[in-house]
Nucleic acid binder design. Structure first.
Length: 301
DNA sequence: GAATCGTGGGC
DNA sequence: TGCCCAAGATT
């Protein structure tokens, strides 16, 4: 039990303060505009996975212009979708979103589902994205837990310098306990918690002077102790397969059709690693080989 | 739970 | 291309 029976009613955070702060200061991101569909929200949330807002925005706008409905995207060849994904990174997200769009068009009347479990059954939609769509597109009460929310909760509720390693069930329960009962307020609070983590309660140099809940933040009251959990694991990039895969795919994105193997060979000197990465791209379905032995984005030959 | 999967900006 | 980080999902 985390809460004391002697103090059952004291809310850890005041939802009203956060909701009001969000209403007054939220950035006017295009996917937050009134009337945005579930499809618009799903595309934005997928693109935003591990990817900064500024890089997503122009691509999202292009996608909404070109493919205003799931069926519009589903009608495209996979390769065109991968190319339009550009350099957002983790291009398997594009393939999964394309696949999800086909399922939504075929089985859900071309409308993104609003039920969390239905969303979770779609490719590329996990614990975060399913609840983000339910909350932000459909105004439902659903604990939306991303890295920002985890940090806000770690500080404001638990008084820690940062969140420890993620644990989906514990994290969901943590945030669920903060949400008001009614759908509309809970959905607004979820958006507010994320925004707070992004613009105020940041990893480095948090702007506590501007924080609407600093007065009942456990981290403040504890004297803002440093993070004391296990060391965060830092992902290498230079020299890894991810870098090589990125270089290989970049060649194919920039080509208008199939390319010769020599063109791919030029991007990386280690032949063994190069071949392994090309194989993995073929396995992932991000690259296809033509009958004459050349390579192309899927469906583009 | 741990490893893997891109890309680029801030420092 | 040093280290850290960014609205995660999948295996």
């Amino acid at each position: 039990m985390k809460t004391s029976a002697a103090n059952p009613v004291a809310p850890p955070l005041n939802p009203i303060e956060l909701i009001d702060w969000f209403a007054a200061t939220a950035r006017p991101l295009p996917w937050r505009a009134p009337g945005i569909t579930g499809w618009g929200v799903l595309v934005s949330e997928t693109m935003l996975q591990q990817t900064p807002v500024n890089r997503v925005q122009p691509i999202w706008e292009e996608w909404m212009r070109r493919w205003p409905l799931p069926s519009d995207l589903a009608a495209e060849p996979q390769g065109e979708v991968v190319r339009a994904w550009g350099k957002l990174g983790y291009p398997r997200r594009a393939l999964r979103l394309h696949e999800a769009a086909g399922i939504i068009a075929a089985e859900h009347g071309d409308v993104v589902p609003s039920d969390v479990n239905t969303l979770l059954a779609l490719p590329g939609i996990g614990a975060y994205t399913a609840r983000a769509v339910a909350a932000f597109a459909y105004g439902k009460r659903a604990p939306v837990v991303d890295t920002n929310v985890r940090r806000v909760v770690a500080r404001a509720v638990h008084g820690a310098g940062d969140a420890g390693p993620p644990s989906t069930k514990r994290d969901l329960d943590d945030v669920d306990a903060l949400l008001p009962d009614d759908d509309a307020s809970a959905a607004r609070l979820s958006a507010a918690l994320m925004e707070l983590g992004q613009v105020v309660c940041t990893v480095r140099s948090p702007l506590c002077e501007s924080c609407p809940i600093a007065h009942d933040c456990a981290w403040q009251h504890a004297g803002r102790p440093a993070y004391a959990g296990p060391p965060k694991k830092v992902q290498k990039f230079a020299g890894t397969d991810r870098q090589v895969r990125g270089k290989l795919l970049d060649v194919l994105r920039g080509a208008t059709g199939p390319v010769q193997r020599e063109q791919l060979d030029a991007v990386w000197s280690d032949a063994g690693q190069r071949d392994r990465c090309l194989d993995s791209l073929l396995v992932d379905g991000l690259v296809e080989q033509t009958d004459d032995g050349r390579f192309a984005l899927p469906g583009e030959h």
